[in-house]
């Protein structure tokens, strides 16, 4: 009975959505702001990847909030999990092959992640994706070498400094050029080269570090629990 009732409710909701969707032709037009970004993005921000120019350029304030959310998740997770009693599990050691393989892969993963977030303004990718890859590298180590832990101080510092660089870069924008927050005050450079798009790559690098270390601390906390 309850399931039936639930289904009816959900169907009503979806019917409402379908009625609205009728107003939106599928796959036909670009939106108003989308058109503008595609047309002007590369000139205004200097980033070849328009998604990046939106994420770190036009809507970088969203990104600031997003970083904050991630930061919050790490902090909140820590706050919630601090008060548990630590249980000592005997974790079975991983096999030699896994162990060695992971150690071998780890620097490569980090290198790859660095590539992703440094080239965020040129190709698909960016700070978040790169950060996720960083974290996956650390996750490998955690899984393969029980007992190894990240350097918490270093992790915290990179977490904080990453965020601070973002805000400080934004705040510098208040004093130079057009005087608005998160203004792209550095020279745009030549399109499609590494040193282009002003502050975007710098922010993305900072974000890469920040996201990576935040995910690391999440993983670290979770691993401590298990």
């Amino acid at each position: 009975m309850k399931k039936f009732f639930s289904l009816i409710l959900l169907i009503i909701i979806v019917v409402g959505m379908i009625y609205t969707i009728h107003q939106i032709p599928f796959g036909k037009n670009q939106s108003k702001i989308g058109k503008y970004f595609v047309a002007n993005g590369k000139d205004e921000t200097g980033a070849a990847n328009i998604v990046t120019s939106v994420v770190v350029g036009y809507r970088s304030f969203d990104t600031l909030g997003e970083v904050t959310v991630l930061f919050l998740a790490a902090i909140g997770l820590g706050a919630i999990l601090t008060t548990t009693k630590k249980q000592n599990h005997d974790i079975e050691k991983a096999s030699l092959i896994l162990n060695t393989g992971c150690r071998f892969l780890f620097p490569l993963v980090l290198l790859f992640s660095a590539y992703i977030f440094i080239h965020g303004h040129l190709s698909p990718g960016g700070g978040f994706q790169g950060g996720a890859v960083v974290a996956s590298g650390f996750l490998l180590i955690y899984l393969a070498c029980p007992g190894k832990r990240i350097n918490k101080v270093g992790n915290t510092i990179s977490e904080s400094v990453g965020g601070l660089i973002f805000i400080i870069l934004g705040a510098i924008g208040l004093f130079v050029g057009d005087r608005y927050f998160l203004a792209n005050f550095l020279p745009k450079g030549e399109l499609n080269t590494l040193f282009s798009a002003g502050i975007i790559p710098i922010i993305y690098i900072a974000l890469g570090f920040k996201v990576g270390s935040e995910l690391n601390s999440v993983i670290d906390k979770m691993m401590e629990e298990s």
């Binding site: 108003k32 503008y36 036009y58 304030f61 608005y180």
Partner: peptide, 13 residues
């Protein structure tokens, strides 16, 4: 009105 991340109104936050 404070513009962030761009100068043109409906396109930036």
């Amino acid at each position: 009105i404070v513009k962030i991340g761009g100068t043109t109104t409906p396109f930036s936050i």
